[in-house]
Design a binder for these strands. Structure first.
Lengths: 259, 259
DNA sequence: CGTGCAGTTGCATCATGTGCAACGGTCATT
DNA sequence: AATGACCGTTGCACATGATGCAACTGCACG
């Protein structure tokens, strides 16, 4: 909507692919060098872009700062974290928390076995949206039309023989997940890794986040992992209760909304 | 330099503090609501900003994607990583890799004991620039004038009684580090954590990154950790050799540059 | 010593971003 | 129920501010 800003922001993904000099930026943007220069300077002032010794530009540090601050401030994450830690202490496995946003699913917290290490290593990276338990949970809650539209648009990479193969199977899986209120990923992403997950809901009943417990085959069998399901669901429900109950001050009104 | 872009980008740190609605954004930007709307829409189209159900805006997922891609593409990181892993396998402790940029020091890689987990949990967060071993290494290499100017500008929080107390002590410490070619942090940030670090240099001899090994008191004493210094230095030197030698294709000319 | 290339600057033009005022929807008040 | 306040949204006329050009600089290379 705003040409100048639009052009400036287009520079970011361009630089994400690797450093580029002024000429390259101008060319790939389709603008005059002087224009590109001014845009880059503005980005630079805000720290989003950094100029290395060879004069080429690359993405800057402030970007990390922003991403960091953003994730720190997510209400759900804050509320959920202690619950995730507690769950991890009881079962010992890796615990994930994820949200859905604009056709992407991303992890916003993770508790690793033993160490309570928040690791954002996969943030931003395309999560295996067609197979991950948390992805199924988040997508299952979308209105049917959206689910259908999304399924059509997706690729279905066969990470393993047990990966979701196509849109039809995916939609069926989502329907199941939607009905039963929990989800699994049994070797669909990595042959030897299984997950069980449950949804976290807002005051209006809609799924706002999803959590899962993951463990490799060699530690516990899929059956053993599934036996944790009640515990996982109880944890998710506890988070749901706290989240939908305690934050009426944050949201304008915790009621309405339909779309 | 470009007013429109400048305003748009100013929205990001604003939203990093927490979600805000249109009115708040417009007010804090000092522009008309309709202007703020158009800027937000543009940011939204690029995924940098997300609109939650209550219509308020917060930072978007693409931000993480960009930060992620950016860090993935850092040459030093790529080259250093296997060396860091090898070092970790030999000594078992946590290994960090950091760079300096625009008055900030940030971690770009980390190898945790046992697990080769890349953890960006501290990326973007103000690293304890006055005490961390890697920070000292990176800052020690700046031209003296810059060091002095920076030291004046800094705060010197006393994380522990052993933290660097003031600018004078800091500059002295940097001089020492500069001369000896390695640095430590003995309980200066967390009472029980010690670190030893060494610099990684580019072809021109300037410090481009720094690495360190950290371990808690309870596992190894400071003396024991210091005994790892030769190993740490050898690792850093190995990275230096590979980095300054092998990448003549990436940089225009691996020679010149002085500023 | 000249040629070519990349980054930078100043400037005239007009495209673009701007603020205003008016509309529509939702919620709170009387 | 009806009223009023508030917030997001739209269309528009104006002039601010972004654009591309051309000329200048500094550097590297032949």
């Amino acid at each position: 909507m705003s040409q100048t800003v639009d052009r400036a922001l287009s520079i970011l993904p361009l630089l994400a692919q690797g450093p580029a000099d002024l000429g390259q930026v101008a060319e790939r943007l389709g603008v005059h060098k002087s224009t590109a220069l001014r845009l880059l300077r503005t980005l630079h002032e805000h720290g989003l872009v950094y100029r290395q010794q060879d004069q080429r530009y690359r993405l800057g540090a402030r970007l990390f700062a922003l991403a960091q601050e953003a994730v720190e401030n997510l209400d759900v994450r804050e509320i959920a974290h202690p619950h995730l830690v507690a769950l991890n202490e009881r079962c010992g496995h890796t615990v994930h928390l994820a949200v859905y946003e604009e056709n992407e699913v991303l992890y916003i917290d993770k508790v690793e076995s033993r160490y309570p290490v928040r690791m954002y290593s996969r943030i931003g990276k395309p999560v295996a949206i067609t197979v991950a338990a948390v992805a199924k949970l988040l997508l299952a809650d979308l209105p049917e039309a959206d689910r259908r539209a999304l399924a059509e648009r997706l690729d279905f990479p066969m990470y393993t023989p047990r990966s979701t193969p196509n849109a039809a199977a995916f939609l069926k899986e989502l329907a199941t997940v939607r009905e039963q209120g929990w989800a699994t990923d049994l070797g669909g992403h990595e042959e030897s890794i299984n997950c069980v997950g449950a949804p976290i809901r807002g005051a209006d009943g809609r799924v706002v986040a999803a959590m899962s417990v993951s463990a490799p085959n060699v530690v516990v069998t899929a059956e053993e992992l599934l036996s944790l399901l009640p515990l996982v669901r109880r944890t998710a429900d506890a988070i749901t209760r706290e989240y939908s109950g305690s934050s009426p001050g944050r949201h304008h009104t915790p009621s309405e909304d339909s779309a």
